[in-house]
Simulated scan of single mutants.
Amino acid sequence: MTTTPTIGLELPAAAIAGVGSRPFGVYVHVPFCATRCGYCDFNTYTAGELGTSASPASWLEGLRRELDLAAETLGSAPAVDTVFVGGGTPSLLGATGLADVLDAVRGAFGLAADAEVTTESNPESTSQTFFAGIRDVGYTRLSLGMQSAAQHVLAVLDRTHTPGRAVAAVGEAKAAGFEHVNLDLIYGTPGERPQDLDASLDAVLSAGVDHVSAYALIVEDGTALARKVRRGELPMPDDDVFAQRYERIDAVLSAAGLEWYEVSNWAANDAARCRHNLGYWDGGDWWGAGPGAHSHVGGVRWWNVKHPARYADSLATGTLPVGGVEQLTDEESHMERVMLTTRLRSGLPLDVLDADERRAAEVVVADGLLTQVDDTFVLTDRGRLLADGVIRSILS
């Protein structure tokens, strides 16, 4: 038995019946950016790229319709545990626009009393007034894109903010009442020196945030960065440099009291961890609203059409803007669980693995990349550097 297909999506009754027994979040994708960063391959658009085909107003109207249809599709869906507004650059909507986004989520589903509500922000499009405005309407957590404190590194990434702006923004956010603030770092950018990374880490620590995400630079096909690498204008990032940078980041953050809880994420305490992302990693349910957003409910995964104009046009007809759907097989669900939980400090439960996989994991333990902690396998410090290889070894 499935839901009626009149709104463009069929979900098995068993998948819907389980909603509420797992964490349930809403991700909202804001596809707008003032400029395009050279390394970014996210589904984003500048005003010049969109022209008159779409606007924040048409996107917001589509978002409201999608969330209402989402609630209708899921039936007696629970109040939302977590909301994450990402992009793109959500802060371009201003405090009023982000209030409208949260009102749309609240109106369609309702929010749990202790809901975590996060928005990403570009430091250059924020202010004391902005932070106060979104705090007043219910946002509880911020993620600011710092990337680096070195101007020449920001220039390679085509980031437009000034090096000190991210730290200043953290101070403004704290003054507005935000207890939980994340800073994003990117490491391994061509031209980044060890002292540049140290300057970035010094800035992070001086800001006093309770969460840090740090990601190795990936050269994505089709980006301006990839074209520069292909033409020989920039070198391809080096894996050995990535490893050195990661070890430095982990050492400095750990010494400052921020402990890793996922390979690329550090937090000062349990309350500082991103519950929304933990929902992804722990196999929860989430509805991804907005152009190109991905969703998962009860082993069914789907994604929206990418262009904001197509997105809005579909919803104007009362049809969910679904671009594709897949039902995960038991094998695929198992592989995803191993892939995601291995990356967590809480570890990979032994009882998730079959006999062959457990034997493979024991070989990895002997190689010093995993350690057994009670009834889980946990990545060692060296294992975190080779996490993808560890996962392949277990699943091979």
Score class of each variant (00 low, 15 high):
residue 10 E to Y: 01
residue 297 V to N: 14
residue 239 D to S: 09
residue 178 F to V: 15
residue 356 D to E: 14
residue 71 A to N: 09
residue 237 P to K: 02
residue 233 E to I: 06
residue 263 V to Y: 12
residue 134 I to N: 06
residue 377 F to R: 00
residue 288 G to M: 04
residue 57 A to F: 10
residue 34 A to S: 10
residue 376 T to P: 11
residue 279 G to K: 01
residue 251 A to M: 06
residue 334 H to I: 04
residue 102 L to F: 09
residue 138 G to T: 04
residue 316 A to K: 07
residue 37 C to P: 15
residue 57 A to S: 09
residue 239 D to T: 10
residue 344 L to N: 03
residue 256 A to T: 00
residue 331 E to C: 02
residue 278 L to D: 13
residue 163 P to Q: 06
residue 394 I to V: 03
residue 340 L to S: 06
residue 182 N to Q: 05
residue 82 T to D: 13
residue 150 A to W: 03
residue 171 G to N: 11
residue 218 I to N: 15
residue 87 G to T: 03
residue 126 T to V: 08
residue 177 G to S: 07
residue 308 P to K: 02
residue 162 T to N: 02
residue 152 H to G: 03
residue 40 C to L: 12
residue 183 L to I: 00
residue 351 D to H: 10
residue 217 L to F: 05
residue 215 Y to G: 12
residue 284 G to E: 15
residue 79 A to I: 02
residue 368 G to F: 09
residue 345 R to I: 01
residue 300 V to G: 12
residue 76 S to K: 01
residue 281 W to Q: 00
residue 207 A to H: 06
residue 229 V to E: 14
residue 165 R to W: 03
residue 21 S to L: 05
residue 260 W to R: 07
residue 200 S to E: 11
residue 55 S to Q: 10
residue 171 G to I: 01
residue 212 V to E: 14
residue 79 A to C: 11
residue 46 T to C: 07
residue 55 S to P: 05
residue 227 R to V: 05
residue 389 G to M: 04
residue 267 A to G: 14
residue 1 M to Y: 12
residue 56 P to K: 00
residue 266 W to V: 11
residue 76 S to I: 03
residue 288 G to S: 05
residue 105 V to I: 05
residue 318 G to K: 03
residue 243 A to F: 01
residue 267 A to P: 12
residue 136 D to F: 06
residue 309 A to R: 01
residue 19 V to Q: 02
residue 305 V to T: 14
residue 163 P to W: 03
residue 291 P to C: 15
residue 24 F to D: 12
residue 209 V to P: 13
residue 174 K to T: 12
residue 21 S to G: 14
residue 86 G to T: 00
residue 382 R to C: 08
residue 205 L to A: 07
residue 199 A to R: 00
residue 306 K to A: 15
residue 160 T to F: 12
residue 266 W to H: 10
residue 36 R to T: 14
residue 184 D to R: 00
residue 318 G to V: 02
residue 370 L to D: 11
residue 148 S to G: 07
residue 193 R to K: 09
residue 322 V to S: 13
residue 28 V to G: 05
residue 327 Q to I: 06
residue 194 P to F: 09
residue 343 R to N: 07
residue 289 A to M: 09
residue 8 G to L: 11
residue 349 P to Q: 09
residue 100 D to W: 00
residue 142 L to H: 07
residue 343 R to Q: 05
residue 226 A to V: 06
residue 105 V to P: 13
residue 189 T to Q: 06
residue 29 H to A: 08
residue 334 H to A: 03
residue 108 A to K: 01
residue 35 T to A: 14
residue 119 T to R: 00
residue 31 P to V: 01
residue 287 W to Q: 08
residue 240 D to Y: 01
residue 196 D to A: 08
residue 72 E to P: 09
residue 63 L to K: 04
residue 331 E to R: 04
residue 370 L to K: 02
residue 330 D to H: 04
residue 128 Q to W: 10
residue 375 D to N: 05
residue 364 V to D: 08
residue 215 Y to Q: 06
residue 114 D to E: 15
residue 243 A to E: 15
residue 98 L to H: 05
residue 267 A to W: 01
residue 59 W to D: 13
residue 320 L to E: 15
residue 107 G to D: 13
residue 203 A to Q: 10
residue 262 E to G: 03
